[in-house]
Design a protein around this nucleic acid. Structure first.
Ligand SMILES: NC(=O)c1ccc[n+]([C@@H]2O[C@H](COP(=O)([O-])OP(=O)(O)OC[C@H]3O[C@@H](n4cnc5c(N)ncnc54)[C@H](O)[C@@H]3O)[C@@H](O)[C@H]2O)c1
Ligand SMILES: NC(=O)c1ccc[n+]([C@@H]2O[C@H](COP(=O)([O-])OP(=O)(O)OC[C@H]3O[C@@H](n4cnc5c(N)ncnc54)[C@H](O)[C@@H]3O)[C@@H](O)[C@H]2O)c1
Lengths: 221, 221
DNA sequence: AAGAGTTTGTGAACGCGAGAACAAAACGAG
DNA sequence: CTCGTTTTGTTCTCGCGTTCACAAACTCTT
């Protein structure tokens, strides 16, 4: 908002770039694990499925971490991107709604391996509270505030039915959560300062269906 | 590609608009179920979480389905959008990889209710083939070709580990599938004419983490 | 029938992102 | 030390998407 203390870490990175940084990070991790020490923007772009000019432009927002005529040091760049995104630290996360999808999410190993730690599973249904999923107790939804306070949770995941999602989001915001990942098929209203991202399977399928239909029409034309 | 037979149905709708049409459709269904007969662009925009000018412009790509001074007939507009997207017909879908996530997807009621029909669940692991999930047998992955041929499947969902995803995608394309929804955390290479959309939980979380980190920095500045 | 009040559909301005193209910088060979 | 090669970082241009603003079109009242 106001003038930052300058120093390092470039100011506003374009949103489109932010969305690609995790892809680059994953490609770098794969390269690193395969023993690659250095890579060119061309190599990395291919691994990430983007244009090399776009890749270089994206990286230039972070700083000059490459060497002309040589390329990028894989581990160094990997660290720089991880730091920029913020995944060098661990982010505590709560998941609300431990049904079909919630179970899958709780069992998802990608959380831990990418800098996120599931600190609690919450569900409104008392019959769920007996359960232990992926080594974590399912607890009553009303425990949310205490859990958020004790663990400093900033990120919440909603996997409840659509009808309950707005209520859950409201409670999350009240408790101080300021980033929400919403799997329920509904539009959430939240105050300014709270980020919401949605993952919507049926929207993705419908987009595919639209293009599929057009292909079919083109064929019969 | 070549000149279409003109007739109705407007040509190329912008991709950004296509991605929002399913949101409008869902909002219209909700309105319709609550007994609303007519709505203004303002009403619908609010329900869909977008700007009303953007909504009107989006709808204008489909045609002129509103009445000035009045608004839109909810059921009529709902049908027009559904037809444009292609969800007035039923789309057969196969899901490959019936692990944690695959189970959740198979049990997801949103498929059927939105014009998609799961015709088969496939897994490479023989120990899974005993199983029946959501009333559907889990079958060997090698049955893919036969299933696609018999059911005219155009859309495939990948829920395998990342390491297997490219192989699965290749096989799908060979069998004639031309739209893929990929849940595995990997970049897929496919020939031109095949659409791929990805749903990537860890990318979404990392984007949230980035913004969360910036908020924290702003607070301490 | 005419005027006041609504609300759509769209032309125009603007800003952001994608990609091409190139200058600057590093390296290695001779 | 100099020149050619490689590859980055950046500038420039173009196209797409968003938003504003308003004329056109419709309803309702008097
Ligand atoms: N299953 C999938 O593959 C899938 C895919 C995409 C989207 N979704 C969406 O994700 C959401 C969850 O789907 P699901 O299949 O797991 O549903 P589900 O019914 O199996 O699970 C929902 C869980 O949320 C709990 N819940 C309900 N109200 C709650 C509240 N107010 N507070 C806390 N918990 C509450 C329920 O007790 C239940 O355990 C739905 O909105 C669905 O549309 C699911
Ligand atoms: N679980 C989640 O909530 C979640 C969330 C986001 C993304 N993902 C991604 O979704 C994918 C699946 O996750 P999961 O937790 O269900 O994993 P999982 O290991 O539980 O299930 C994977 C399934 O795929 C099957 N499989 C493996 N190779 C195959 C092949 N070549 N052909 C057909 N089937 C094959 C396995 O037998 C297994 O049943 C992973 O790529 C994961 O990163 C999972």
């Amino acid at each position: 908002m106001t003038a930052r203390t300058s120093a390092e870490s470039t100011r506003d990175i374009p949103e489109a770039t932010v969305a690609r940084l995790p892809v680059y990070l994953r490609a770098l991790i794969t390269l690193s694990e395969s023993g690659t020490v250095t890579c060119s923007s061309e190599d990395l772009a291919r691994a990430a499925g983007v244009n090399s000019a776009k890749l270089r432009k994206d990286l230039s927002y972070l700083g000059s971490y490459g060497t002309r005529g040589v390329g990028y040091d894989v581990d160094y760049l990997r660290y720089q991107i991880a730091r920029e995104i913020g995944v060098t630290q661990d982010w505590p996360v709560v998941i609300v709604g431990i049904g079909n999808l919630g179970h899958a999410l709780a069992n998802y190993s990608g959380f831990r391996s990418r800098g996120f730690r599931v600190v609690a599973l919450l569900d409104a249904d008392p019959t769920r509270h007996e359960e232990v999923v992926a080594g974590i107790d399912v607890r009553p939804f009303d425990d949310l505030e205490q859990i958020v306070r004790e663990n400093g949770v900033a990120i919440g995941v909603i996997a409840t039915p659509a009808i309950a999602a707005q209520d859950v989001a409201d409670r999350m915001v009240e408790c101080g959560i300021s980033s929400i990942l919403n799997f329920a098929a509904t539009v959430l209203a939240v105050p300014a300062g709270v980020d919401v991202r949605k993952v919507d399977l049926s929207i993705e399928l419908q987009i595919l269906a639209y293009h599929e239909q057009r292909k079919a029409q083109a064929d019969t034309a």
